[in-house]
Amino acid sequence: MSVSKTLLVAFFLLATSVVAKAAEPKELVFLSWPDYMDPEILEEFEQRTGITIKQSYFDSDTARGELLLETEGKGFDVALINGASIRILAKRGWLEPLDELSIPNLKHVDPRFRTAFEKAEDFGVPYFWGTLGIVYRQDLVPFPVTSWMDLLQPVKQLHGKVSMIGDSADMIGVALKALGYSLNSTAPQELREAESLLQAQAPAVKTYRYISLNENSALLTGQLAMSMMYNGDTRMLQEYNENIAFVFPKEGGNIWIDYLSVLSASPKKAAAKRFINFLNEPEIAARLAQYVYYATPNKAAEALLPEDFRNDPVIYPSEETLKNFETYQRLPPRAQKNRAAIFSRIVY
């Protein structure tokens, strides 16, 4: 064998290894809510990096928890985590720590959002924030909706036409709110009242699954007339039907923040961080906000948003509106247990 030939072989091997290395992070699995991502942005990411984003969906925080639990956090690369869950998932060891080194665009993000929840700063990058309210069909509900009680104690004609979000925190939370309690209440009596309220409502509830936001949505078809809904999603539905109305109940509600996290079990953490970073590019984040109709914590992106978007009372409720709104606080484990039990009793 000649030296030249040996060199040739070495070069070939080197060349193939380079190709192989470049092809490695070809696809990322992104665990997310449905209709919470602009496909064009994903295409753009793919064009720019060659990385395909495959979405996997959940329709409640509880459901996401189950999903992760079944796989022990494996099988996903990037996940959307609500603020209250980050600490627990991180404790479980499923989340990859993130910092400005790995996600340079974090610099655009409003620090208030990064630290709104325990451990959120270490394990998540704020995605969007929002609130909880009631969406309803003005043409199907014969009165203006103002209270959670309109949903929790539906009039007879709405029986079977209301839906609830099958999330223990949200569901129990609105019940507590409706009763005038804090949604972080741990008082057994208050929780019992909330449970009773929910139990009483249960027969009228069409579903505890989060309704879809596309043109086939049950709310558009008229199967549902009223539902709990996250504020931005309403705007998506309103694109199809003008009768869709959204209200912030007078009793108040929840203010939430979703975070992007990289799962510690992911073998493509670098690509995942790159994706998160991409999403926090101001221009991208702004486009995304307009796509999903949610308020972005990315200050740079916010600056890029049009005026009417920023003045949309649904997306950016007023201080007055948010007067009675709360975020989820860390609760004693056994209180969590109680809520889980209540939730299971109602939903399962």
Binding site: G65, Q336, A340, S344
Partner: peptide
């Protein structure tokens, strides 16, 4: 406990149900 109650209990209860 927190892990159990928050993360796992709903699933467990669902299973039990």
């Amino acid at each position: 406990e927190e892990e159990r109650y928050v993360l796992m209990l709903p699933s467990l209860l669902k299973l039990f149900s």
